[in-house]
Structures are given as structure tokens and as C-alpha cells.
Simulated scan of single mutants.
Amino acid sequence: MTKLNTNDHLLKNAVIDSFSWSTEEYHHDNEITMNDYLDNHLLHGAKIMFQDGSYAEIIIDGQRYALDAKGDGDSFNHIVTLNAI
């Protein structure tokens, strides 16, 4: 029987959610993708704590999360991953 690893450090680095969307506008870099996400798709009640290019940190209900923005196949499809930190 294999025991489930419940090491908090490993769990905190796991991708826990992602959000993907498409635009008619070309995003020439991932910083534009992050700005679009923060301006138009951020979860209600989230507070932006830090942003640097395609990386941001937010707080939702007292929990801090890292966000990473990137293309999802091309410059018209995008994805942001959410990781607990």
C-alpha cells in the first residue's frame, strides 16, 4: 500500500487551478496576458499583492496564490495557472 505524501511544501507548489480564454487581439507577450487576466478575469474578492511581468501574487480569503500567465498554443489563446504559496 502506497502512503499519500502530505508534505506541506510539496502541496503548496502544486498547481491547484487554471483559467484559459481566447481573445481576438494578439498578445505579443505574457505580460499582456497577465494584465488582461488581472483587469478582466480576476476572481471576485481577490486582492493583487504583487505583479512583475507575467507573474503575480494575489490573496483570496487569507490564502496567498502565485499566478503565472502564458500562451496556450498561440498568441490568441491564453492560460493563467494558480498555485498556493
Rank of each mutant, 00 (worst) to 15 (best):
N83W: 11
F50K: 04
S22M: 12
N83E: 15
D36K: 07
A56Y: 00
N13E: 13
I85C: 10
G73Y: 05
I32H: 07
D72T: 01
L4I: 10
D74E: 11
D74P: 04
M49Y: 05
G53W: 01
M49H: 05
A46P: 01
F76M: 11
G45I: 04
K12L: 12
L43A: 09
L38V: 03
A69V: 02
I85Y: 05
Y26D: 15
I59E: 15
Y37R: 04
H27T: 05
A66E: 14
L42P: 02
A66L: 14
G45V: 03
N7R: 06
H44D: 12
K12Y: 06
K12S: 11
W21P: 00
I79F: 02
R64P: 07
A69L: 09
D52V: 04
E24L: 13
R64Y: 14
Q63M: 15
L11A: 03
A14Q: 09
H44G: 06
W21R: 00
I58P: 00
D36T: 10
K3E: 13
L42N: 02
I59A: 13
M1W: 06
E31S: 15
E31T: 14
K70Y: 14
V80M: 02
D36H: 13
E25K: 13
G73Q: 08
E57K: 06
H28E: 15
D8P: 11
Y65H: 07
T23E: 13
D52M: 11
D61T: 10
D17C: 02
G71V: 06
H44K: 12
L10E: 04
D68A: 13
I60H: 04
I59L: 12
M49S: 09
D8M: 10
N35G: 07
D8S: 08
K3F: 10
K12N: 11
T33S: 12
T23I: 03
S20T: 04
T6Q: 12
H9L: 12
A66G: 12
M34A: 07
T81E: 03
M1R: 06
L43V: 07
G62H: 12
L11V: 00
N13F: 09
I60Q: 08
A14L: 10
H27I: 03
D36V: 07
Y65L: 08
Y55P: 02
K12Q: 10
S75A: 15
H41W: 09
G73S: 08
D29G: 13
Q51C: 03
H28D: 15
Y65R: 01
N30I: 09
G62P: 14
S75N: 15
I16T: 05
L11P: 00
T6W: 08
K12F: 07
K70L: 14
Q63W: 13
N7T: 03
A56R: 00
D72E: 14
N83R: 15
Y55D: 11
I79W: 01
K70M: 15
S22V: 09
L10Q: 03
H44Q: 10
I59H: 08
V80N: 00
G45A: 07
H41M: 09
S20N: 10
A84S: 15
K12D: 11
I58W: 00
F76G: 01
G73M: 11
A66P: 03
I85A: 08
L38T: 00
D68R: 09
T33A: 13
A66W: 09
L11G: 03
D8R: 05
V15Y: 00
A46W: 01
